[in-house]
Design a binder for these strands. Structure first.
Length: 596
RNA sequence: GCCCCAGUGGAGCAGUCAGGAGUGCUCAUCUCCCUGUCAAGGAGAAGGCCGCCAGUUCAAAUCUGGUCUGGGGCGCCA
């Protein structure tokens, strides 16, 4: 039905006869001559309908309107001098139309496909098929394909095999909430949709498949965020006979390959940072290193302080830390109060601000500082005249990290501290490996130690004997990749030794019976010669979002869910017939919807 | 579960702080004019439950309370 794509015509095609199919992007009717921009996936080209070329085609073009789906047969012509459009890739040529076929007329769309501004997202999602016609979304979908295609080419070349794992599997109570699927055949029993293929890929290693990857949907029934959807796509990967360095090497080369193929960028080597260093410097385990404003510890400065909040925090074994916002010492009282409220809403008891001015420190608590403390604060914080120092003190160092880490990111955004860089600039992409995570974190609510990664994560040899004595000091063989402040991937070297696995489960307070019931199939598999193995699982949606310059993964997912996990296009989730429920041995306890 | 922001012809906005007739802008739609435009131009027209419910008031898009929807965040996300 067509010989060329619209966006691919160039001056070299001048004189050739072409047939194009696409949608009417815009129409400019001059009465005697009519222009349309014809659009397909590849882009736009101008089509001219003139009575001097074809009376019939010109007459037929009269009825054309935006988004009509048409076929045009015509000849490519170099544009007359002075009518070249440098803003269009095909702007040096136009197609003189000899014949026009209208495949489908179109109603006036609910929003303009050729529009430039923002459109309310619910409307875009309800008419996603129209939204995807827009250049921006089309580019995002094509970039997503390019990235996924590059990933597959890389792993194929490295000797990995792509194998699918089940979507209907067994619920494991730890971790995120599962999406459940009722069994018709087994009354009262449920499958769960996978949160990740974690256990299956480890079984592949026991099977000797050696190098596995899969681009796979995963499901977690938790509340949504800009970077979280209930169903999302992972690049799941696992390798045998490897240690940390091997997985990091393959993964880093994979990202470099993808960035080169999809964006044409030669990435620098990734920075490596321990979890401890990331927390100390940035307050978070996914540092955005595109800007400074790092955290500074003020414990030494205020070691002997009389200022009550600092004294109390330090005496409780907590921390006093700060970030310095350059050039904002003159911030107004209203904005400062808002910052204090923001810190409180993040969990801090308060926020102490201190402006460095020619007259000295401008701060509500200045009167509690000694001269040494004033001088020490400015010096240690590295502040200069005109800077604003923001201090958080808390008996729990975790609160200090969390509040300052969040404020650092938010203030950088608000005050434009992140340099604008072209995508082609390697400096635009700050990949950081985070390593040496603690194995456990203490769960206050439940009064027990929980895994930071998952129960099959390897233990750094030198710290394994803390398992029984001081779990907080056990270091895991887990690693993350972060990019510009986003967590892109998590992985680990796994435990392949049954004895070590039992020690870890015991430290988690999981009994043998419980372990057997939950994931006995994996533990049993390990009885038959489990190789040393490990892997990683980058999030595809986040990778594409960052590569596309989006701050929201919905922009790179064809049919995403709203924040309340609904789909305005299909209306999912929706009620089902009682008959369907009955077949599945289910009865709803939800309150009946109000009758209208 | 909690905090914050938004909701005004089909789309995007202004108007809301400081109450006074659905008041305005850009685009789209419809009719007419127009043979070189390209976000075409000109003339005209149509199009509204100011998200919804209540309250205050002589009077509510505007003030108050509630509610719904969307978005950002906290909790949650091994």
């Amino acid at each position: 039905m067509r010989t060329h794509r619209c966006g691919e015509l160039t001056a070299a095609d001048a004189g050739s006869s072409v047939t194009l199919c696409g949608w009417v992007h815009t129409r400019r009717d001059h009465g005697g001559v009519t222009f349309i921009d014809l659009r397909d996936r590849s882009g736009l080209v101008q089509v001219v309908f003139s009575p001097e070329i074809s009376l019939a085609a010109h007459a037929a073009a009269e009825e054309l309107r935006g988004e009509f789906c048409v076929q045009v047969q015509g000849s490519v012509a170099a544009r007359r001098s002075g009518t070249v459009n440098p803003r269009l890739a095909t702007g040096e040529v136009e197609v003189a139309a000899h014949e026009l076929t209208v495949f489908s007329r179109a109603e006036t769309p609910p929003f303009q496909v050729d529009g430039h501004g923002e459109i309310e997202e619910t409307l875009r999602l309800r008419y996603r098929y129209l939204d995807l016609r827009r250049e921006h979304m089309r580019d995002n979908m094509l970039l997503r394909h390019k990235i996924i295609s590059a990933i597959r080419r890389f792993f194929d070349a490295e000797g990995f095999v792509e194998i699918e794992t089940p979507m209907l599997t067994r619920s494991t109570p730890e971790g995120a909430r599962d999406y459940l699927v009722p069994s018709r055949v087994h009354p009262g029993d449920f499958y769960a949709l996978p949160q990740s293929p974690q256990l299956f890929k480890q079984l592949f290693m026991v099977s000797g498949l050696d190098r596995y990857y899969q681009i796979v949907k995963c499901f977690r029934d938790e509340d949504l965020r800009a970077d979280r959807q209930p169903e999302f796509t992972q690049l799941d990967m696992e390798m045998s006979f490897v240690d940390i360095a091997d997985v990091l090497d393959v993964t880093e080369r994979m990202f470099k390959f993808v960035w080169r193929e999809a964006l044409g960028v030669a990435l620098d080597d990734f920075v490596r940072m321990t979890y401890g260093e990331s927390m100390e410097r940035f307050g978070v385990d996914k540092p955005d290193t595109r800007f400074g404003m790092e955290l500074t510890d003020l414990g030494d400065v205020f070691a002997g302080t009389e200022a009550r909040v600092f004294r109390a925090a330090l005496d409780d074994g907590g921390a006093v830390k700060c970030v310095t916002l350059a050039g904002r010492a003159d911030m107004g009282r209203k904005d400062l109060d808002a910052l204090v409220d923001e810190a409180k809403s993040l969990g801090a008891g308060g926020l102490v601000w201190a402006g460095v001015t020619a007259e000295g420190i401008r701060s509500p608590v200045d009167k509690f500082f000694s001269d040494d403390e004033r001088a020490g604060l400015v010096k240690v914080a590295g502040a200069e005249e005109g800077d604003l120092i923001l201090i958080v003190a808390d008996g729990d160092p975790g609160v200090v990290y969390k509040v300052l880490g969040a404020l650092r990111n938010r203030l950088a955004d608000r005050h434009g501290l992140i340099p604008e860089r072209a995508k082609s600039d390697p400096e635009a992409w700050k990949f950081v490996w985070i390593t040496d995570f603690p194995w456990f974190e203490y769960n206050e609510a439940e009064g027990r130690w929980d895994p930071i990664h998952h129960p099959f994560t390897g233990v750094v040899e030198a710290t394994k004997d803390y398992l029984e004595t001081d779990p907080g000091r056990v270091v895991s063989k887990a690693y993350d990749i972060t990019l510009n402040g986003w967590e892109l991937a998590s992985g680990s070297i796994r435990i392949h030794d049954r004895v070590m696995q039992e020690r870890v489960l015991s430290a988690l307070g999981i009994s043998d019976e419980e372990a057997q019931a939950r994931f006995g199939f994996l533990l049993n598999a390990f009885r038959y010669g489990a190789p040393p193995h490990g892997g990683i699982a980058p999030g595809i949606d986040r990778i594409v979002a960052l590569a596309a310059g989006e701050s929201n993964i919905r922009e790179v997912i064809a049919f995403p869910k709203t924040q309340s996990a609904t789909d305005p296009l299909t209306g999912a989730p929706a009620p089902v017939d009682d008959a369907q429920l009955k077949l599945l041995h289910l009865r709803s306890t939800a309150p009946a919807p109000p009758e209208n």
